[in-house]
């Protein structure tokens, strides 16, 4: 493993200064479950790791009626799924953070890190996209916000510039009669990277017979996690039926442009997009019905 320096920043501004100084030779260290492995396996080189786990804002969970849930970017998965409020309001996010790596990885890995690593197969990103999450980015010229669906730009690349880093993720308070669901397909039952991932969120009418609105997002079928806009839009106002869910699944399949690699073939992935989209939507719908 190459040598590098390590600084545990105490404030957002200190972290920004360090990042600005070193440009692409500095990286934020959050849970380290991707970063440390990448440096060790020579897939990434750097001079400096900036640990942000001592910066309070980056590690807190807060709820407010204005912002909804504000999730410090470094909050590890286990803190998220042990939070009863997140559990009840954002079950799709819980689905995702409960299956990232093993329990050991969940003790460190964060949703912010999952986003910034920008893997097309990141489990939490589709879950955040369907929850309409916003990424809060701090930088030398202040703070800006980017929708989770626009955060990743290519494998390993994000919208962030040198000197910027992700401090928190804001997720709006869900509507009544809504729920969310995330699932992935992997060959084993745990410990794999998604062959395909699918997240869905739904808002149903009072009677739970129709969709008021829905969102679908996909993982591992394009260079970035994808928001399935057409699939999402076509559900709005429609009565819940296998037929309409199948149509959404087909629309999701239409935007998937998967590759073949050691985790799955393009054909298999395309096929799975349909299966998982259906299961994610049905899962979210059933959750609304169950909480009646």
């Amino acid at each position: 493993m190459q040598a590098f320096e390590y600084v545990a920043a105490k404030s957002i501004s200190e972290a920004i200064d360090l990042l600005s100084e070193r440009g692409d030779q500095a990286r934020i260290l959050s849970g380290g479950t991707d970063l440390i492995v990448q440096v060790r396996e020579k897939r990434r080189s750097l001079e400096l790791m900036v640990d942000v786990k001592q910066i309070p804002e980056v590690n807190e969970i807060s709820h407010s009626s204005a912002d909804g849930l504000v999730l410090g970017a470094s909050t590890p998965c286990y803190k998220i799924y042990n939070d009863p409020d997140i559990k009840s309001a954002y079950p799709g996010l819980i689905d995702a953070v409960s299956i990232i790596g093993g329990i050991q990885v969940q003790g460190r890995a964060s949703v912010g890190g999952n986003l910034c690593n920008a893997s097309p197969a990141a489990d939490s990103t589709p879950a955040l996209i369907v929850l309409d999450a916003t990424c809060v980015i701090a930088g030398p010229s202040g703070t800006r916000e980017v929708a989770a669906k626009d955060f990743c730009t290519a494998p390993g690349q994000t919208t962030m510039e040198n000197g910027e880093f992700l401090t928190s993720i804001k997720i709006p308070t869900p509507d009544t009669n809504s729920s969310s669901f995330y699932l992935r397909f992997i060959p084993r039952n745990e410990m794999d990277i998604a062959v395909v991932g699918a997240g869905a969120s739904v808002v149903l009418d009072e009677s739970h017979k129709s969709f008021v609105s829905a969102h679908v997002a996909l993982g591992a079928v394009a260079p970035t996690p994808l928001y399935a806009e057409e699939a999402s839009n076509l559900l709005s106002g429609q009565e819940i039926s296998d037929e309409i869910i199948n149509q959404a699944a087909e629309a999701a399949q239409a935007i998937a442009r998967p590759i073949s690699d050691m985790r799955g073939t393009a054909n298999q992935r395309k096929h799975l997009v349909g299966v998982l989209t259906r299961r994610a939507l049905n899962g979210a719908v059933n959750r609304v019905k169950e909480t009646k």
Binding site: P187, R188, N189, E190, M191, D192, I193, M262, R263
Partner: peptide, 14 residues
Amino acid sequence: NASFLDYRMPTSYD
């Protein structure tokens, strides 16, 4: 797939 991530040996959950 020369790692325990992608050389998929069964886990207790499998």
